[in-house]
């Protein structure tokens, strides 16, 4: 049975089409990665699935309940960890969980037992009486995960669950998530910016401009790129990319050479055989050459024309880039 079924789901904000006739299914017990650049429609989709936002068109069924007509049943059966922290910082960890238990009508005899068990799971038992505002970012996230699970949901929505956390904490949080999934056959709907985390997904869907442009297992998505990824750095990247396209027209049939972050990226079926050929006759002056197996970053770059990491770089970063480019101009 599918936990989530989405058919032709759409949402407009005035003239803007944020989500455009999106369809997909998520099987029970699956970790479903939902990736896309900022503004691609990820959060809009999650908000519709969680009954926080009205649909403009289409249909969505979560745990067998319609998100429009059976809102209350949907809410009872889902757990959420939001992108932005959503805890009451002036209450203690325990009070936050208890509020949640009251709101979801968890019977008294189960309430304290579950709160204790979950606090133990996320290793916050010794801080249960501390105010949340004294917690670190990682502790808050852990508490939110515990809260999201308190009412035994069958599907957990994780919207950027590890954003802004250090690598160690990220690892720890993923350990919890994977353990939970194993234990309870929990379905997990995940959005993330971190490609190494997306690797944990059973299937990944990539959304851009409100449309799903790819949906498959991480391995198949990588295989679809065909072979190896070659990165070149030339004195003049644009000229070198042009030369590549002219010399190897077959490249443009696959993922065509893209200039990104000062390197040219493209893929070929057999990198180790392609490189010597390239070296023999390439005219542009090359500074460095790299060859590697494709990653999800490459998949994302190829499909959207942008590296997902760039999405995180804010305006400041971009400005800095511009100033630097100017400074080094000829």
């Amino acid at each position: 049975m599918n936990t989530i079924e989405v058919e032709e789901l759409s949402r407009n904000f005035g003239q803007l089409v944020a989500v455009d006739r999106v369809s997909f299914q998520v099987a029970e017990g699956e970790i479903f990665g939902f990736l896309g650049p900022n503004g691609a429609g990820k959060t809009t989709t999650i908000n519709m699935l969680c009954t926080l936002l009205a649909l403009s068109g289409g249909r969505a069924i979560v745990n067998g309940y319609d998100v429009v007509r059976q809102r209350s049943e949907v809410r009872h059966s889902i757990g959420l960890v939001f992108q932005e922290p959503a805890l009451d910082e002036y209450l203690t960890a325990e009070q936050n969980l208890r509020f949640h238990a009251y709101a979801y009508n968890i019977p008294k005899e189960l309430r304290e037992k579950r709160i204790g068990k979950l606090l133990e799971l996320v290793e916050l038992s010794d801080r249960r009486k501390s105010k949340v505002r004294t917690f670190s970012g990682g502790m808050k996230r852990r508490l939110e995960i515990a809260r999201g699970l308190l009412h035994n949901p069958r599907v957990l929505f994780l919207d950027e669950p590890t954003l802004g956390l250090d690598p160690q904490t990220r690892r720890l949080i993923w350990d919890y998530i994977l353990a939970l999934r194993k234990e309870n056959n929990l379905t997990i709907f995940l959005t993330t910016h971190y490609m190494d985390e997306a690797e944990n997904s059973d299937r990944i869907s990539i959304i851009d401009h409100g449309r799903i442009i790819a949906l498959d297992t991480p391995d198949k998505l990588k295989d679809a790129l065909g072979g190896d990824v070659i990165t070149l750095k030339a004195v003049d990247n644009n000229a070198a990319a042009l030369e590549l396209k002219e010399r190897y027209p077959e490249l443009s049939s696959g993922p065509s050479p893209v200039v990104q972050n000062g390197v040219i990226t493209f893929s070929v079926p057999q990198g180790e055989k392609f490189l010597p050929k390239l070296m023999d006759s390439f005219q542009s002056h090359l500074l460095s050459i790299g060859i590697r197996r494709p990653t999800l970053d490459d998949v994302f770059l190829n499909l959207t024309g942008r590296a997902i990491r760039d999405e995180e770089a804010g305006f400041k970063e971009q400005m800095k880039g511009m100033v630097m480019r100017r400074g080094h101009g000829r």
Binding site: R75, H76, F82, E84, P85, A86, L87, H100, A103, Y104
Partner: peptide, 13 residues
């Protein structure tokens, strides 16, 4: 502003 409203709004209330 601090996000807690979302916790209230998504609960079956």
């Amino acid at each position: 502003e601090f996000g807690f409203l979302k916790e209230i709004l998504v609960a079956p209330l």
